[in-house]
Simulated scan of single mutants.
Amino acid sequence: MPSLEHAPEHTCGVGGRRELSAPRLRADTPERAGLDPVELGHMVGEVQALTAGDRPWAAGAVVLAGRGPVIAVAEAAGWAVRYASYDPETDTGVELPPTARVPVTVGTPFDLASLTKLFTSVAAVQQIERGTLGMNARIGDYLPDFRAAAAYGITVRQLLTHTSGLRPDLPLYECPDDEARMAMLRAEAPTAEPGTYLYSDLNMLLLQCVLERLTGRTLDLLVQDGITRPLGMTATAFGPCPGAAATEDQRRPWAKADRGLLRGVVHDENAWALGGVAGHAGLFSTARDLAVFCRALLAGGSYGPARILGPDFVELLFAPPGLGFALDQPWFMGELAGRGAAGHTGFTGTSLVLDPATDTFLVLLANTVHPRRRPPDSRPRASLGTHLARAVI
């Protein structure tokens, strides 16, 4: 297995209380982690297969898995940049010459897509811990100008649990300027009865507005100062991120905007329209940085000498139905699901799962949308989760 101590990492862009030091991650053998090397070998083989052939599941991928403070698998396969464009006539990517392709390394940053929601959620729970934000408070108390949502009494808890009733998204990318985009958000009322589960990017956009109004600071600074800087996650930031894996040749009609081949700028059209910093999408990161994030949460909010949350508030994140985090979802967690596993997926091909019951974590970064988006297929994610679950000794 590659050693992460010497893995190259790109830095994208530019707190924490000091307490007793929690163990830092280190690369070691599966046996030292209490994991079956044969089962992890199957995991590595699958990732290599997922990036092979003329129509791979992803052009490139990185898988990182471990238990406790030990990283037992860190494998990169395929290409960060494989295609120059997408050809709709042949429904294939236009391959770059081999010498022009960019291989994936363990340190390659990826567009996290909806994994960004986890960082927005942690930033919100940090404010709840400080007593500046009320879990059951109505967002109208913080955003009185968001009259449509305020009229329905939508709460902070409903935003965090996707039970506000707001529709999945809005075409903010069609608005001519920021003022028009904010006016659209302010005018948006629930389409379902509040209390009804309906997964929506708008929940995290409104939560971002609450946090920024409450603190007087932008979300990128809240994430940087409250999460990534204290944890030493130097490769995690909102874009642009020039060294990132490429995503889509973004053109209509399959996309919502005509932006060409994207690399290092956010794939999500609404996040792009909002300047790249959004509550639902926009972060770039590496597998090792995300492993640190997982490790901190599994350790009750601590990593090394830093603490980003108290243990009670980490438990609050993972208490059913989960705050921002999805809980026990076999469709992308496989057999890790069932005992309180928490995680999320991202549209670009990303996912992470952490399982407090076995103290394991699994990070998968992939660019499944390179060179163009396709119907999502999470079976590979679930299969990798099953391999990790079965590897636990």
Rank of each mutant, 00 (worst) to 15 (best):
L354W: 05
T132V: 08
Y152C: 08
T247N: 01
A59I: 08
R251P: 08
V38H: 10
L290K: 05
E9D: 14
T345H: 02
F238M: 03
V70N: 10
C12T: 07
P2W: 15
D87V: 03
S285D: 00
E188C: 15
F119D: 00
G15M: 03
R167I: 02
S164V: 02
Q329L: 05
T358M: 10
P144E: 04
D54K: 02
E193R: 15
A245C: 05
T196H: 15
T286G: 09
D178K: 04
P176Q: 11
V353H: 00
A319Q: 14
E39P: 08
G324N: 00
H267W: 02
G78W: 03
S285V: 07
A22K: 08
L143K: 03
P311G: 15
D377P: 01
P2C: 09
V125L: 10
R130V: 01
G385L: 09
V266W: 08
N203Y: 14
H162P: 02
G260I: 03
E193G: 06
S302R: 15
G41P: 08
S285I: 04
A76S: 08
G279C: 06
L35V: 10
L231Q: 07
G343Y: 04
R181T: 06
A366R: 09
P168W: 06
A27T: 11
F284S: 05
R101Y: 12
S164A: 10
G60S: 05
Y86I: 07
P109L: 00
H370V: 03
A113R: 09
G34V: 07
A237P: 01
P305K: 09
D91R: 12
R307L: 05
D355Y: 05
R157I: 04
L115N: 03
D178L: 12
L170P: 00
A65M: 12
D177A: 13
T161S: 13
G66F: 01
M204A: 15
Q48S: 06
G340A: 07
L202C: 15
H370T: 08
T92Y: 09
S114W: 11
A319K: 14
E193P: 00
S383I: 06
A366K: 02
T29M: 13
E193S: 01
V125S: 02
K117I: 04
M204T: 01
V277P: 06
G334W: 03
H162S: 13
F293D: 00
R229Y: 07
P380L: 12
L323Y: 07
S21C: 13
V73N: 11
G385H: 12
T386F: 13
R259V: 09
G16W: 06
R32W: 07
H6N: 11
L4W: 11
T108D: 14
P144C: 06
A52S: 14
V277L: 11
A61R: 03
T234Q: 12
A33D: 10
N136R: 09
V104C: 09
A148F: 11
A124V: 06
M1G: 13
D36R: 10
V292R: 09
L219P: 04
V277F: 07
L159N: 02
L202G: 01
L219V: 00
C175I: 04
T163S: 13
E248I: 05
P23I: 12
A52I: 01
L143I: 07
L221V: 15
H387L: 12
P305Y: 10
A49C: 13
M43E: 06
A246K: 01
H42W: 15
V73D: 04
E179L: 14
P230K: 10
P97F: 07
P23C: 02
L214G: 04
P103L: 06
